[in-house]
Every structure is written in structure tokens, then in C-alpha cells.
Amino acid sequence: MSLQYLKDADAVGDREKLIRYVRLHFGDGNEDAGRHEIDKAWIEALKPLLDVPPTDREFILATLAEKDHATLAHLFFHLHFYFVQKSGEWIHDGRV
């Protein structure tokens, strides 16, 4: 899918085309696999918080306050792959 295809989808609020693109990216061209990968990343993000350990909220809040929207969005994609790697179930052929 081209960038223009996605911009057109965004302009008319076609969320299904947008999320399908994300699933294809995370699933290496397999939409069902991508859906599973999204779930997997969220589960891995949840697990370290179950015991409510101390976290660096100052860092989090400062990052959210200081960094631009695109950088945070890019970080969000990085975090997806970070947690997928943490799961130990890596479906991709290469590495980030």
C-alpha cells in the first residue's frame, strides 16, 4: 500500500484500511499474524506491571511532555517490536 493510499484512507476515516496496514507490517504481510503480534506485544507490556514494581514515571511524563508527536509514534512502533522480542516468540525473518 502506498503512502497516498493510506493518506486517502485517513482523509475519509477509513480505519479498516489503516489498521490493516499496521497488521500487515507487524505480520510480515500476513494480517492474521499481525493481529496476533499486536495482542502479544500488549500481553508482554502487561506482565512486568502485574507486581506493580516502581517505574520511572518522571522519565515517562517528561518524554511525553517534551517529545513531538511523530517521535512518540515512532517510539510506539519500537516498543511493539521490543515487547514482541521479549516474548521470545519472534516470527520475523530478520532483526530490528
Binding site: H92, D93, G94
Partner: peptide, 10 residues
């Protein structure tokens, strides 16, 4: 080194 996700690097 190789950094990519979309082809088998084995």
C-alpha cells in the same frame, strides 16, 4: 551486520 525484518537471514 544485517538490520532488516523481511527476508530470512539464517
Amino acid at each position: 551486520e544485517i538490520h532488516q525484518l523481511k527476508y530470512p537471514t539464517f
